[in-house]
Design a protein around this nucleic acid. Structure first.
Length: 488
DNA sequence: AAAAAAT
């Protein structure tokens, strides 16, 4: 489980064009003003170039800085005073050319003393991971063998993925990294040797456990990152009266970790990143980190223009399966990889069995599988060995696989026990397609009036037009739709 | 309901 980033890692399939996880090169905008107590700089950022011109024309990212420190948007990585080793990682390993919008804006905020806390929101697939990984790597002292940066993620899949990015970007820095997720060293933690890696990435429960057994020292942590921060700090309060689970979310563990680190490591910088922050979470987050800089995007501007959204009306469950196999999987190699999101583990299994019975090769991921199986299924998918992945929302957030250009919402995401859409989950799911400005499509399956109402609310919330595929029974309609999305 | 994780 310990990986030193200097070790060579097995080379993942290299995406042919542009970078590994960021939007197409774009012109970063004007300077972010900084003086004054609460300075609001609305940055209007224009896209130029890009042959495919898929990107949104004009996105407003609102940056609010506090204090006296002026920040200028970074047009190049050179402007950030990074070490030569780190620059080499960015150019040679990551194949980046220049910072994406969110990177141009947030990196100076992360790297400039006094290293204020930051709450940052940016579109799915726009390069958030690079922001905090670069932040961690550049603030770690490679000659000091103690944990200095810690990143907390909601799922083991995301933690593993982020660890890979750390390894790749930091390949020439000699900085070590380690993964703290369940399923490794599960026998007896008391016999484990303490973590010495400089960058530690993990899930909340395991990290908390290692901290409480004094196997992860937090006294030298300089940067604490919460990936998918809105989820990590969401109360997830169960309003349902019949439920005796008061809280079922990550908030307790996350806050505990944050408080402990802030207590023992004065001046630790907290970085909170996500594509979504609903108003409630935003308010809570602002109270949690004091005197922080922030970067936000309006919700209407969050859904990706490069991803074409569709709805498909269907009479019943059987029709859903028919559409998947006869209208979509039959297209075979013409499509890239596909993720089918379902609401429950059980329906994941059922769909898996039906498609398998019909002779299609699919794999399925959910949280009830054994850790090793989960890792294997994800690896096969990332290596391109499997093409169709059925998944619960375990993979809704953060999962970065550029070859995914089609997402199917077999079930629409709704908040527990209601017909209220889960807006955040919807946005994250569709963000699995169209990584980094690539083209993508989403099919939302609508089976009854409930679904229709959920869909209507989603469209309304994001102010997005979702075209309807005229007939679920016609091959041509789907081909048409996929063509319009730029996939065929 | 799902997610993490511990019981």
């Amino acid at each position: 489980m310990t990986t030193t980033t200097t070790e060579s890692t097995s080379p993942p399939p290299e995406p042919k064009r542009d970078e590994a996880e960021d939007p197409p090169p774009q012109e970063a905008a004007a300077a972010v003003a900084g003086a004054g107590d609460l300075d609001v700089a609305s940055l209007s950022i224009k896209d130029e170039e890009e042959e495919e011109a898929v990107s949104d024309s004009n996105i407003n990212i609102q940056a609010v800085t506090t204090g006296e420190t002026p920040y200028s948007s970074a047009a190049t990585f050179e402007q950030l005073n990074l070490t030569a080793a780190l620059l080499k990682g960015l150019y040679v390993e990551m194949k980046f050319e220049k910072p994406s919008k969110i990177q141009a804006i947030t990196l100076p905020m992360i790297l400039t003393p006094p290293h204020k806390d930051l709450v940052a929101q940016a579109h799915n697939g726009s390069g958030k991971t690079t922001c905090f990984v670069l932040g961690m790597l550049s603030r770690v002292d490679p000659h000091f063998e103690r944990p200095q940066a810690l990143c907390i993620c909601p799922t083991r899949e995301l933690a593993i993925q982020n660890l890979h990015v750390v390894g790749k970007m930091g390949k020439y820095t000699g900085i070590s990294s380690e993964l703290l997720v369940p399923g490794i060293f599960e026998n007896d933690i008391r016999n484990c040797s303490p973590v010495l890696a400089q960058v530690v990435i993990g899930t909340p429960g395991t990290v908390k456990k290692w901290m409480s057994f004094k196997k992860l020292s937090v006294t030298d942590i300089r940067v604490l990152v919460f990936d998918e921060a809105d989820q990590m700090l969401d109360k997830s309060l169960n309003d349902c009266l019949c439920s005796f689970h008061q809280k079922d979310g990550f908030q307790d563990d996350s806050l505990r970790i944050m408080k402990d680190i802030q207590r023992f490591s004065k001046g630790c910088q907290v970085l909170l990143f996500s594509a979504t922050f609903n108003e409630t979470v935003k308010k809570f987050v602002s109270k949690t980190v004091k005197d922080h800089n922030q970067v936000f995007v309006k919700k209407e501007e969050l859904s990706l223009d490069a991803v074409k959204q569709y709805k498909v009306a269907l009479p019943d469950e059987l029709a859903k399966i028919t559409v998947i196999k006869d209208r979509i999987l039959e297209l075979g190699e013409k499509l890239g990889q596909i993720i089918i999101f379902v609401r429950t583990r059980k329906s994941a299994g059922m769909l898996h069995r039906s498609l398998t019975e019909f002779g299609y090769y699919v794999t399925t991921l959910h949280g009830a599988l054994e850790h090793g199986d989960r890792d294997k299924i994800v690896k096969e998918f990332k290596d391109g060995l499997t093409k169709v992945l059925i998944s619960t929302d375990v993979l809704a957030r953060g999962f970065d696989q550029q070859q995914v250009n089609l997402v199917i919402n077999y079930d629409l995401p709704v908040k527990h026990g209601t017909s209220e859409p889960d807006y955040e989950v919807y946005l994250h799911r569709i963000g699995r397609a169209g990584r980094f400005g690539r083209k993508g499509a989403v099919f939302n399956f609508i089976m009854d009036d409930w679904d229709r109402e959920v869909m209507r609310k989603l469209e309304n919330y994001f102010n997005a037009q979702v075209a309807e595929v005229p007939s679920w029974d016609k091959d041509e309609d789907f081909e048409e739709a996929l063509k319009a999305a730029g996939l065929l």
